[in-house]
Simulated assay, not measured.
Amino acid sequence: MSAQQPDPRGGRRGGGAPRPLRWGILTKSEVDALLTAADAVHPDAVPISNSIAGRGVAGVFAARTRSGLEVDAMGVCRDAEGIVAHQSVYGGAYTSTPR
C-alpha cells in the first residue's frame, strides 16, 4: 500500500492527521446518566475522571448543560466565590489556583 492509498482500518498509512474519536453508545449513555443525576441533585461541580472517555464525556456534558469546564484539577474546595479547583504546575513543584 502506498502512502496515498486508504488503510483498511480507516486511516492513511504514512502518518497524516489522527482520526477523531467516535461518538459511541457508551459515551452517550454516560452523558445521559450524568445529565439525569445532575438534574436530580443540582450539584455545584461534577468531577469526571481524566481519561480518554472521561474527557469526551466532560466536553459533551459541559456543552449540553452550558456549564464551565475545568481540566487537570488536582483538588477542589469551596470559598466565598464558589467551587475552586487546584492545579499542579511546573512538574508538580507548585500548586496553582486559577481564578
Rank of each mutant, 00 (worst) to 15 (best):
G24R: 06
I52F: 12
N50C: 03
Q5K: 11
F61W: 00
V89Y: 06
A45V: 07
S88E: 12
V76H: 05
A3P: 03
P18G: 14
E70W: 03
R19L: 15
R64D: 11
V60K: 06
P20Y: 09
R78S: 05
P6A: 00
A58C: 01
A58L: 01
A40F: 01
D79N: 10
V41C: 12
A40Y: 02
G91T: 03
I83E: 03
R19A: 14
G24L: 09
R22S: 11
E70D: 13
G16V: 09
V84N: 04
D39S: 13
T36M: 14
S49L: 09
T27G: 10
C77L: 05
E81C: 11
P43M: 00
P43R: 00
L34W: 06
A38P: 01
E70K: 12
V60S: 06
A38S: 12
G16W: 07
S49H: 08
S2N: 10
G56M: 11
P47H: 02
S49Q: 09
A62Y: 08
T95N: 01
L69T: 04
A73W: 07
M74Y: 15
D39A: 11
V76Y: 03
A63F: 08
A85I: 10
D44Y: 01
Q4W: 05
A53M: 10
R19E: 15
R99P: 09
P98I: 02
G56D: 15
G54E: 01
L26V: 14
A53L: 10
E81A: 15
P8D: 10
S2T: 12
H42N: 04
G56Y: 08
S49F: 07
A62F: 10
Q87L: 15
E30S: 14
S88F: 10
R13D: 11
Y94N: 05
E70A: 15
R19C: 07
S49T: 06
A33D: 12
